[in-house]
Design a protein around this nucleic acid. Sequence first.
RNA 1: GCCCGGAUGGUGAAAUCGGCAGACACAGCGGACUUAAAAUCCGCAGACCAGAAACGGUCGUGGGGGUUCAAGUCCCCCUCCGGGCACCA
Length: 855
Amino acid sequence: MEEMPDPVKTSEDAQRYNPAEIEPRWQARWDADPALYAAEDPTSGKPKYYCLEMLPYPSGQLHIGHVRNYAIGDALARFMWMRGANVLHPMGWDAFGLPAENAALKNNVPPREWTLSNIAAMKKQFRRLGMSFDWSREITTCLPDYYRWNQWFFLKMFRAGLAYRKKSKVNWCPVCCTVLANEQVVNGRCWRHEDTLVEQRDLTQWFFRITRYADELLAGLDTLDGWPEKVRTMQRNWIGRSEGAEVTFPVHNCPDSMSVTVFTTRVDTIFGATSLQLAPEHPLIQHWTSFDMELAPAVEQMIAQQTAARESGDLGAIEKHGIPTGRSATNPFTGEQIPIWVANYILADYGTGAIMSVPAHDERDFDFATKYNLPIRRVVAPNLDTDDLALPYLAEEEGVLIDSGEWTGEPCLEAQGKMAAFAEAQGFGKATVTYRLKDWGVSRQRYWGTPIPMVYCDCSPDEPIPVEESSLPILLPEQIHITQEGGSPLGRVPEFVNTTCPRCDGPAKRETDTMDTFVDSSWYFYRYTDAHNDQAPFNSDRANYWFPIDQYIGGVEHAILHLIYSRFWTRVMRDLTGPDGQPLIRNSEPAARLFTQGMVIKDGAKMSKSRGNVVSPDLMIDRYGADATRMYALFAAPPDRDLDWQEDGVAGISRFLARIYRLATKYAALSQAEDRQAIPEDRSTQSSESVRLLRALHQTIGKITQDFSGRWHFNTSISSIMILVNEIVASEPAMDAGRISPPVIVETLQSLTQMIAPFAPFLAAELWQELNGNGVVFRHPWPSASEFWAHEDEVEIPIQVNGKLVTVLRIADGADEPALKAAALADEKVAARIAGKSLVKTIVVPGKLVNLVVK
RNA sequence: GCCCGGAUGGUGAAAUCGGCAGACACAGCGGACUUAAAAUCCGCAGACCAGAAACGGUCGUGGGGGUUCAAGUCCCCCUCCGGGCACCA
């Protein structure tokens, strides 16, 4: 910061805050002391607290959003240590992924080398920021000691039927040259390339059966009180549970006794069904088009149009249209024959890919029937006597069935249950539940990921063979030539592909796809509890001690990626047994509390290289120091809100820290003379200035302690510290004149140092030493707020007349209603305001206000 | 279309349970110190009206209505912004 050479330190200079000198000095001391932030054993007897921020991708540089994320978690971790908890605060690297391969293509650096050097650079930044991570538990997901457990889990899941292979339509990103999970497709585009449309390809891929846990994942959301409602809502929408019924309609006059099964949430309206609508990709349609030379081109054209619309992103704008197939099916409830259509708005992969169309009671069916002149038949009404009703009539809660055979007169909701049961009894349907959630596609046609531990052998032509657990890890070959053509890069490494079959010992070929990187992050936080275990992913006792995570902190962008996958994985592990036959873990949810911090923006816009508004953390630290940078990130806005980065604000925080530094060093000598001693709670022993200072101090302690336990509005925590510092500055004359005793000054400055410790750890460590504090400030017990000293003798009571403020009176605390009323009426301004009017009502809220209502 | 957030001075924001709107900062303006500047310290500061000034008045938390002695806060309607989901049967 200060470039000027200044070999001779004057006493003036000694009091100048110089983070460029302080911070590296403490950083070196902390780096040399790995025990400082190490979690203790369960035997410590302290309450455990697992504080975790989402691990970063090692891109090579922390950005300012990271600084904010980790400043929040670091403040919390330090606070919990000071409150006496056994804190686990680990860090690691989400180190597999495409950028490493892209860098390899571009700069000809091996992905491993690129990734590891990025990690080293970012670790340096973390240390420079003074983050309190327990580096002894560091994990790096691209190293075999980590990813071998991905493979281990994969084998367990394969055996449990949770990992399986199927051919299906999958999302393909032409830039990444790989398949993407549904969760990685945003508005039809790749989550990594917002300009790149995702294509649909038919491929055989590995899936994890997340749908088996769909109901549990949904129900579990209700138990997550400590999660933001927003995230819970997003997950509910993503899972998209829909209760309804399936009904099978036999195709009329069909030699092969074919049928169409539809999914509907309104089986009660089935008497109003006037057609069936099938997705163009529906197997039955595909069957007919194989020989129906009239239908085939029309359906083909429909699919082509759909594909085009999907790729241009305006699927919603495309007009709904259909093609009659010329075939019909029998409604099993009525025996009636209704026509079968192909319609472009029916999704092949939702429900059964076929619906029954009830124009009278569904908006879209109504539009469709109107367009094609299909009959519209009313079967629901508010009551049996309604004969004039605007259609479509959508109500189901207050509706009853009409013209529906034996169900006529039944309320809709009851009819739904009864009719589904009837269908099941008759063998042509059943009540069922459909989800929007699909199984998680985990195969990636890329190199830099965990190899999938399966082999293909002629001895088992239909079923891939899992490798032996003892042969793990299946190592990712290094020094390979990476290209983006011709499928998975591993397929071009014969030493990798060619292996022996674990079943027949004959020659076999390995799976050459790798796992989605979200696999790595689905369980990484368990590994921290036992990071060096080479016998198991982790020891169950250790995981059970630390889990669930007490506080998880990260960006909301993972609401339906990482945060749903890891909830799934937690349940899978709970249902797997470890080597001792016990469940691997006991908890069903990974994190008791989740906090999603807001984005850091600049000049009202998201930071991006193309906008040229990226703020570099290193530059901020160079100019103002790590403490000021971190503290500003917490001060500028409440942590859940977006934060607009203003460099002037960082400078302001730096000035504030400099003021603290000046005060603490100025009076440091006082603390050298005597040990800190408890201030007896007795006002008679203290000057009025001391009482005033102690009051400000204890009010601040109370405020910050409360902020940490509840709202996390660190912006107001820091502003209350500023108020305290302003009060200390105002007390300086009294301190210098000896009217405030040294023990009070020392108490105040040491407590102040403790209170800034979660936010500005370097300065806190420096001042704790200057002030002769005991031990390490981050482990020193958090100061407790004294009610006695915080108490105000007089409170300001606003006096209103007809709800308008007239004056503010200082009145003794605890004054009762009559006293407050009398004081208000005795005031000159009040008297002037109510002169000539009659007092009709007096509202007195003791300790709050007086409102005189006059006419 | 549906579901979540949000809107307060020039700026970031505060007001935690219906009780003084704008704490604390940033930027700004004025002053002290200084040969000067930086740094530091002190002071002013929602808008409008009136006034030499002190003092005073009116309006004011996206807009409209309501409840209440009292509304940024509660209720109803609307606008705009951000985010999520979306031919989901």
